[in-house]
């Protein structure tokens, strides 16, 4: 059972479209696996839509409305309406072509949210395989990370946040056991050391380099950029 969910703030950012694509995709994938968050999101969508569209009417003489009018007055709406309705074509239902990726000798069908995102080439390190998603979000790095059975990520911390969405399989860390759909958001104050007995595939988003914290693992700091 999924025990880890996005916070209310993250869901709100998802609803308004204000999160980066990486985190938006993560929440979309979580919601596909988590009916309770999907339902919550739908309710928040209704509330947000009503609030956004009713705001004007609550302040009929607001400066906002006047400025919107001022901005649009130079613009011919009739032309816009005419141009739109002149188009006879209706949108057809998009045909999806599911894309698979092979990581650690296993084939995975990519979730719809990241289906068309370009994947970088695979990097391997021991039992870890990583493919970077080319989202172009600067310091925010997004990857698919595969852990083969018996593999683990050395204990590490990070300055920013680290999101792990478990897409398939399971893993454990000192805090517990995680299953597909778990949405694990860590901030810089926590360390963890995921290990997977039977293997797993994760979607990860990190906005600062990882730092490996423990004993000999400090020597592994060069692999920080591998996962980051």
């Amino acid at each position: 059972m999924i025990k880890h969910h996005p916070t209310q703030d993250l869901l709100q950012g998802f609803v308004t479209g204000e999160l980066p694509a990486s985190l938006s995709a993560a929440i979309a994938m979580h919601n596909d696996m988590c009916p309770s968050c999907a339902k919550k999101t739908a309710q928040m969508m209704d509330a947000q839509a009503s609030q956004s569209f009713e705001e004007l009417d609550m302040h009929p003489d607001s400066v906002d409305e006047q400025s919107a009018m001022a901005v649009t007055s130079s613009f011919d709406f009739d032309d816009m309406i005419g141009a739109i309705v002149a188009d006879e074509a209706v949108a057809s239902i998009p045909i999806r072509q599911p894309k698979t990726v092979t990581m650690g000798d296993k084939d995975y069908v990519l979730p719809q949210a990241i289906e068309i995102v370009e994947l970088g080439s695979l990097s391997h390190l021991g039992k870890l395989t990583r493919a970077r998603l080319q989202l172009g979000e600067g310091k925010i790095h997004t990857s698919l990370l595969h852990i083969q059975p018996g593999g683990e990520v050395p204990e590490h911390t990070h300055k920013g946040y680290e999101l792990t969405l478990l897409l398939d399989g399971e893993f454990d860390d000192d805090e517990g056991h995680y299953v597909a759909g778990d949405f694990i958001m860590l901030d810089g104050t926590r360390t963890h050391q995921p290990r997977s007995e039977h293997g797993c595939l994760c979607f990860t988003v990190v906005n600062e380099p990882l730092k490996f914290t423990q004993g000999l693992n400090r020597l592994l700091n060069p692999i920080g950029p591998f996962i980051y």
Partner: peptide
């Protein structure tokens, strides 16, 4: 309608911020 507006805005902002023209909104939402 809000969903459509949100998706259009998301794709446009993404173009401005990342120079990507991938229109991900229809896959995310």
């Amino acid at each position: 309608v809000y969903t459509i507006m949100r998706n259009v805005t998301f794709d446009m902002l993404r173009k401005v911020q990342t120079n990507k023209e991938d229109n991900l909104s229809d896959d995310i939402w």
